[in-house]
């Protein structure tokens, strides 16, 4: 599927919409997160989402600074708690486009529980995890996706001795309805996956290899560039959950990117009775005038 497909809002703004803010990104030169920022901008442009209808929600980490570099609505919350904030925003006003952005520590470490529950709820939001296999902001400790044996500031002697989490396999197990992987070295593929993820009705996880050039000298751009291949190039069928799971286990010399899995399932918002009459933000508030709320207490 190409990024140029019909936009989310066909009657959207004309071409000259600015998504980026005046704030210059503060990442290290060469950081993989620049690629994510570029890809997100491409996706927003392609989908023509009005910036005021976009909410970028993040936690804490280098990657989580991303909302500040966009001129959309943004919520830069606590380490690991971006997803519940986004959940509250989406449930209050499902007409907003909600994109969560953060790091592997944020989403797969301290906030893993929230990530899994959001997936099973199938809220209509997109979660971009800038997975650099390290804690960048805190200057280089092991993360939940750090490679076995990786020597980091917190594992200086024998390296990491716990097996890394497999975020895509977890996402499949948790019931995510859109599971994809991108690489910062290929922003166009990433933009396409992000656009698809945003258009997807349900929870979309886009895990991105986004190298930390300062603290992770193992999982570098070159490391990924020599290993990644595109799932569509091998004819992967994203509607097949078993095959998708098999592909998430591939690691080593060849690592797949692209869309692993996609399914249709009602979203949480669709099933929530209180949202039947539209977003909470547009409903009347207070006790309804036509019922006596005290009657049941007699």
């Amino acid at each position: 599927m190409s990024i140029a497909e019909s936009p989310v809002r066909p009657q959207g703004p004309p071409l000259k919409v600015v998504y980026k803010s005046q704030t210059k990104a503060t990442w290290c030169p060469g950081c993989g997160d620049y690629g994510v920022m570029a890809a997100l901008e491409m996706a927003f442009k392609a989908l023509k989402i009005p910036p005021h209808e976009l909410v970028l929600v993040s936690g804490i980490g280098c990657s989580s600074n991303l909302p500040h570099f966009f001129k959309t609505y943004g919520f830069h919350g606590l380490h690991g708690r971006a997803v519940p904030v986004a959940t509250g925003i989406k449930l209050a006003n499902p007409s907003l486009t909600v994109v969560v952005a953060g790091g592997d520590g944020d989403g797969y470490g301290i906030g893993l529980g929230h990530s899994l529950h959001a997936m099973r709820r199938n809220l209509d939001m997109t979660y971009v995890v800038m997975d650099n296999e390290i804690y960048g902001l805190t200057t280089g400790q092991a993360s939940p996706t750090s490679t076995l044996g990786a020597k980091t500031k917190s594992t200086p002697l024998v390296g990491v001795i716990e097996a890394p989490v497999n975020p895509l396999a977890l996402a499949l197990g948790a019931g995510a309805t859109f599971v994809a992987r991108a690489f910062s070295g290929d922003p166009k593929q990433m933009a396409d996956l992000l656009a698809q993820g945003i258009r997807h009705k349900g929870f979309a996880l886009v895990d991105v290899f986004s190298p930390c050039v300062t603290y992770n000298h193992l999982n570098t751009f070159d490391f990924f560039r020599s290993r990644v291949y595109k799932l569509e190039s091998v004819g992967h069928d994203p509607s097949d959950p078993v095959e998708a799971f098999r592909r998430t286990l591939e690691w080593g010399e060849r690592i797949p990117t692209g869309l692993f899995y996609r399914a249709e399932r009602p979203t949480y918002e669709e099933l929530e009775p209180a949202l039947k009459d539209g977003p909470l933000t547009t409903q009347r508030a207070g006790l309804p005038p036509d019922v006596d709320p005290l009657k049941e207490f007699y």
Binding site: P84, V85, T87, G88, I89, N93, L96, L280, A285
Partner: peptide
């Protein structure tokens, strides 16, 4: 942790939470 962060999100989006 989720409960309070969700309420903050909903309030941020414009409803009493």
């Amino acid at each position: 942790l989720a409960a309070i962060n969700m309420a903050i999100g909903a309030s941020h989006a414009g409803v009493r939470a």
